[in-house]
């Protein structure tokens, strides 16, 4: 992506921040929240996160990880373990990153 395209992407993302944070304060008159929006809201953020996250964790160059010598596997496992036991975001990030950096620097995985 060229620098200019990234800049356009960033400006668009800024508009999205403004529009989503201010969505229902924009109209001058009160607008009831449609039922479909409430329902979609329950699932849309989760779906977007999962769809972006999984290929990041489990794929290399558009293919599923085909080796056990990939530090991301163990970093993700550690992240899941820490999150499930503590529900702590910061701990999840720190523990997973520690495993990843250790395996990368130690074994070159």
């Amino acid at each position: 992506m060229s620098h200019w395209t990234v800049l356009v992407a960033i400006v668009g993302l800024t508009v999205i921040t403004v529009v989503t944070r201010g969505f229902f304060v924009i109209p001058e008159r009160e607008v009831p929240i449609p039922a479909w929006l409430r329902e979609a809201l329950r699932y849309a953020p989760l779906a977007a996160l999962v769809a972006v996250l999984l290929p990041e964790i489990a794929m290399t160059d558009d293919h599923l990880i085909a080796t056990w010598k990939d530090a991301r596997i163990y970093a993700t496992a550690m992240g899941v373990l820490v999150f499930c036991t503590t529900r702590n975001l910061l701990g999840t990030i720190l523990a997973g990153t520690a495993v990843l950096v250790a395996l990368r620097l130690g074994f070159g995985w």
């Binding site: 993700t76 992240g79 997973g96």
Partner: peptide, 24 residues
């Protein structure tokens, strides 16, 4: 060092907080 993966781990954590019932 692979520090960029910290961003993926952050997303992993947020995803976890959204998994609250059977539907999710």
């Amino acid at each position: 060092w692979g520090l960029g993966f910290a961003g993926s781990l952050a997303l992993l954590g947020i995803t976890g907080t959204l998994l609250i019932d059977r539907g999710t």
